[in-house]
Amino acid sequence: MVREKSINQETPMVRLENLSKTFHVDEGDVRVLDSINLDIKKNEFLVLFGAGQCGKTTLLKMIAGLESSKSGSISIEGKPLKGFDPKVGMVYQTTALFPWLTVMGNVEFGPKVRGVSKAERRKKAQYYIDLVGLNGFENHFPSMLSGGMCQRVGIARAYCNDPQIILMDEPFGHLDAQTRYMMEEEVEKIWAKEKRTVIFVTNNIEEALYLADRIIILSECPASIQKEYTIDLQRPRNMVSSEFLRLREEISTLVELREGV
């Protein structure tokens, strides 16, 4: 295939080879990931889509360095991943902001622990705070912000650390539908402006279709790659265009079929 060839020509940003993961619990072993093989291109917006509770978050955590990968390998720009890679940033489902730090404190945390000078990191943090639309909230604590605003802080915090790869773990799962829709638009705008490789986990089909360059459909426990869709629709996507609806129908049928089994 032509597409296969073009991927092989450049080193993928992230390469997952035969990646598996089993958790050992008292009741026995639970296999959550089953031989995942996946290449992710530079600046690609990749969505991992799966309805189940299994494996997706673990996969992101492994790329972030939060979970070990004993079976299979992860490499970033051709180099095997060891521990925490500064090229990787993450946005969490629970927002996971530091409650004792202000918006500014949260956003500048990465550069600060890496020893970037105060003037420089403040400037940068301010840029990303403005980018996510939180200008004026720099000195607010997370407990004073709404869920959507907290997640904006989470996004700015990830970006401010200059990662090449941003992992987003169901970042809008806890938001109401209206806010969620706004945040999806926001994420796309930010990504268009500040291109990064994004790996985005969701169980919402519309969200996946709205954001993705490519959607990887994962099967339920253990998660393995079931199908892959390259989405060539023009951005920003029209959620009621016939093509969008057709893909939505197709993917939901696929997922429902599987759940029916």
């Binding site: 972030a64 500064p86 940033g89 969490y92 530091f98 990465g110 622990v113």
Partner: peptide
């Protein structure tokens, strides 16, 4: 989880 967040952002053990 916050410890993990800090580590992903580059914090060292003493930090």
């Amino acid at each position: 989880e916050l410890v993990g967040v800090a580590k992903v952002l580059g914090a060292q053990e003493n930090q």
